[in-house]
Simulated scan of single mutants.
Amino acid sequence: MPDSISLLIADDHELVRLALQHALRPLADALDLFTADDAASTEAALAGRSLAGAPVQVALIDWGMPGVAGIAWFRTLIAANPATRVVVMSGAENPTTVRELLAAGAAGFIPKTDSAAVILQALRLVLAGGTYAPARLLSADAAVTSNREAGKDTLNPGIDALTGRQLDVLRLLAKGMPNKLIARELALSEGTIKVHLLAIFRTLNVNNRTEAVVAATAFLADSG
């Protein structure tokens, strides 16, 4: 992760902005924070930074702010700020909207019901070049509805396929432990931990530790 990150938090509720500023401090040693409370101030903040030659790296924007006119507004904003990774937050979880946002170029979608830990990991993934959205919102609508009615976890369908030992490894991974400490905690060799991690990545359809941690953190927050 870079030592310095510029971040715009755009939300019309002051308490939400303050809470996010506090929760996201661990993103970098030097966090250059900007805030906005409606569509116009968001556009102005991003344009001002771009004109100054230092575009905002990540913009975390509320879907329901005053002046935000749905997908079309985000599509225009993203096109006007190609150097900024735009992540949308919302209290509503609509799979169709999420897929349309990602297709429009958004780098992620985070439900406001997610914990601070999940939001932090999601932004780390975005900063690393990835795209984040809960798996439950990327699957077919019918499957999402079916799983919710059955009371099943849908944050990552692959979670259910992990063995008990793999879940143990994943939980420790979510705590930020390196392989050596995970091996010591579970009384296993580092080689065995690496084998478990490879299996976890394959099962969850992720490419690295960061993506696995995002999946694990979301799962643990939902189940805990």
Rank of each mutant, 00 (worst) to 15 (best):
R25A: 11
V118D: 06
E93Q: 14
L31P: 05
F109E: 01
I5Y: 09
H22M: 05
L186P: 10
I9N: 01
R99H: 02
A59S: 12
R124Q: 13
T96H: 06
L170G: 01
A104W: 15
R209E: 10
W63M: 07
R209D: 11
K180M: 12
I182T: 07
P2E: 14
K152M: 14
L170N: 08
D222Q: 10
R85Y: 06
A59K: 00
A174S: 12
D222S: 09
P134F: 05
D62M: 06
V169N: 00
A72P: 00
R136W: 02
L172W: 03
L137D: 06
T210Y: 04
N208K: 03
S189T: 15
G158V: 09
L15R: 06
N94W: 01
T154A: 09
A92G: 07
A150V: 11
M89F: 07
G224I: 09
T145G: 04
E149D: 05
A83M: 08
R49H: 08
A79K: 15
L60A: 00
A47M: 05
A40W: 08
R136T: 03
A143L: 14
G158P: 05
G91L: 06
D37T: 11
I110A: 09
T154P: 01
A199P: 08
H13T: 12
G191A: 13
A199V: 12
A104D: 09
I182Q: 07
V68K: 01
I71M: 05
L167T: 08
P95E: 10
T42K: 01
R202C: 03
V58C: 11
P82Q: 07
V169K: 02
G158A: 15
R75S: 03
A116P: 04
A45Y: 07
I200W: 13
G108K: 00
E149A: 14
A28K: 06
L127W: 15
S189V: 08
G151C: 09
P2H: 05
A135Q: 10
K152Y: 12
I61L: 13
A69P: 05
K180F: 12
H22L: 06
L181V: 13
S6N: 09
F74I: 04
G70Y: 12
N208L: 00
K175V: 13
Q121N: 12
G151E: 10
N207W: 09
S90I: 10
E100H: 14
F109S: 04
L155G: 02
A40D: 08
Q21C: 06
Q166E: 15
V213M: 14
